[in-house]
Amino acid sequence: MNTETTPLLRNPLKEKLSKGEPVFSMTVRLVRTIDIASIAYTAGFESIYIDMEHSSFPLESAGQICMACNALGVTPLVRVPGLDAPFIAKVMDAGAMGIIVPGVQSADEARAAVRAVKHAPMGIRSFSGAAPQLNYQSLPADKTIRELDQASLVVAMIESRAGLEVVDDIAAVEGVDMLLVGASDLSAELGFAGQVEHPEVHKAFLRVIEACQTHGKAIGIGGLGGRPDLVRQYLELGAGFVSTGNDITFLSGAASQKRKQFV
């Protein structure tokens, strides 16, 4: 075996998507401790993503959870608030295996996300030395960069009318691995807030799926946690990544169900 070309760093999420296998993800907005990594693993989730867009999540906690996930083979992604390259670099340096960028509306924005995640020559990310994703192994700089860049994921969210109109251009950007449809915001933008089964929302999903299939990118679906029937439909149409819901709704739902058992 040629150890020079065999990656030291594996991204189980990326590998499953490349094989056409579905991946189910749990969103983390509430829990700040590494216990959530073990809970996700035991529940059977292949991935989690830490939502730093819609929470007050501190970077230190996000990094600790990412490292715990990596040890368990649960791929950790982080949804960043926006295209702040220095912040994205910090997220990656803390242990994330990729980022999710909300509200991408142009190919230029998608390219900016790729540049923030990748090192030169593809990107502008500064080399930080030994990386938590590699268990802080001391490797030659070029090998560390190669390992991190081949394993990292860049996910662009399509959740606006503007993004939908140029989805083909976004899907064509080199270095973007997946387009993730945000059904909640997208349905609102299209004038049918919360009506994820509306024909116009369905047409939007199909448009994203077609763009991804044309350019060989993975397809993610979000905002459909309460509609497993729609999730199954889009999986059959080619989707691979499913954002199932977040820890707040999981806890609230289970707590409500438990309380109802005691009249």
Rank of each mutant, 00 (worst) to 15 (best):
N2W: 03
T3I: 10
P7N: 09
R10M: 03
R10V: 04
P12E: 08
K14G: 03
E15Y: 00
S18W: 00
E21M: 03
V23A: 15
S25I: 02
T27A: 13
T33K: 12
I34C: 08
I34R: 14
D35W: 10
S38T: 13
Y49Q: 06
Y49H: 15
S55D: 08
I65N: 05
L83S: 01
P86L: 09
A89N: 09
A94S: 15
G95E: 03
G95T: 03
V101P: 04
E109N: 02
R111L: 12
G123K: 10
I124R: 08
R125G: 12
F127Y: 15
A131C: 08
N135A: 15
S138V: 15
L139E: 10
L139D: 11
R146I: 00
E147Q: 14
E147D: 13
A151G: 12
V154Q: 08
I158E: 07
S160W: 01
A162G: 00
G163W: 04
D169V: 01
A172Y: 07
G175R: 07
L179T: 06
G191I: 04
K203E: 14
R207C: 03
H215K: 13
K217R: 15
L230V: 08
R232C: 06
A239W: 06
F241D: 06
S243T: 07
S243R: 01
N246I: 00
D247C: 03
G253L: 00
